[in-house]
């Protein structure tokens, strides 16, 4: 039996003026599944994230988070969601602790519960000792860890990551990739990870290839390789995006 659907996107379209950014996008993500959303720059990945997080309005199509319609049951849907945006969204002049406390306040957590969750998430990421440092003092990899910790503080069921490893060195990147994959496995968390970096894909991942606002492939890595008749993901990606650079 398949695990429950955590994120459902149905017939989603979106335009900037006359330019179509998303064109009839359909996919589902189940709990415990790590889904890589792969697409070249300008494929529509960030637009899709803005629609899921309700920063933009959904006019054509339908998005559900854990059974809650994002447009009609916005608050219930957003309570199930943890997000790491492409750009850093931490306050540089505040400490790690202050940034995380701000997030717990926005999610209505009391001080004791907040401290407990903050300690738990930061310890997992080996950042607890640095909790009183200002964000400005941290390097890019550590800032990303704080953002991932923050996204998990309210125990979401779905985790969205919009190109979270951009600009990081290789060890930091691999460590984050591994951590998030383990979260999906051990915590039954549904992960949607947007990327244009092929080496972030694990063989067991679910893969969605988005190109010019359309889904070109949607399935397990092995399935995508099969339909494209290729042996490696980079070749499959190249075939599906017809030679566009990643």
């Amino acid at each position: 039996m398949k695990p429950p659907i955590a994120l459902s996107v149905e017939n989603l379209s979106f335009s900037y003026g006359g330019k179509k950014a998303l064109d009839h996008v359909n996919f589902k993500i189940h709990s415990g599944e790590c889904t890589l959303l792969l697409g070249p720059n300008g494929a529509g990945k960030s637009t899709l994230f803005s629609l899921i997080t309700r920063l933009y309005d959904t006019r054509d199509g339908h998005i559900e988070l854990c059974g809650f319609d994002v447009k009609r049951k916005t608050r219930k849907a957003l309570a199930k969601l943890g997000v790491v945006f492409q750009q850093t969204t931490l306050d540089m002049d505040l400490t790690v602790m202050q940034n995380l406390r701000y997030h717990t306040a926005l999610h209505g957590m009391g001080r004791r519960l907040a401290n407990q969750r903050i300690q738990q998430e930061l310890e997992r990421l080996s950042m607890y000792e640095r909790r009183f440092e200002k964000i400005r003092q941290l390097n890019g990899g550590h800032r990303r860890r704080v953002e991932i910790a923050r996204a998990l503080l309210h125990k979401p069921s779905v985790l969205l990551l919009d190109e979270p490893t951009v600009g990081l060195d290789v060890p930091s990147r691999l460590a984050i990739v591994e951590y998030v994959h383990q979260l999906a496995d051990d915590e039954n968390l549904a992960v949607l990870w947007s990327s244009h970096l092929i080496d972030e894909i694990y063989p067991d991942d679910h893969l969605i290839v988005l190109h010019k606002g359309r889904i070109k492939a949607n399935g397990a890595v092995a399935e995508v390789l099969k339909i494209t008749n290729t042996a490696m993901i980079k070749d499959a990606f190249y075939t599906l995006t017809q030679g566009d650079q990643t």
Binding site: A79, K80, H107, G108, M109, Q120, R124, L125, S126, G141, R145, L152, H154, K155, P156, S157, P171, S172, L174, A175, I176, E178, Y179, Q182, L183, D186, E187, N188, L189
Partner: peptide, 20 residues
């Protein structure tokens, strides 16, 4: 998590008990 790839992680607690 450490900086090293493949670092062992301990993920223990369930992830469903959000604010009531």
């Amino acid at each position: 998590m450490t900086n090293q790839p493949g670092a062992h992680l301990h993920l223990t607690e369930g992830r469903r008990a959000g604010p009531s």
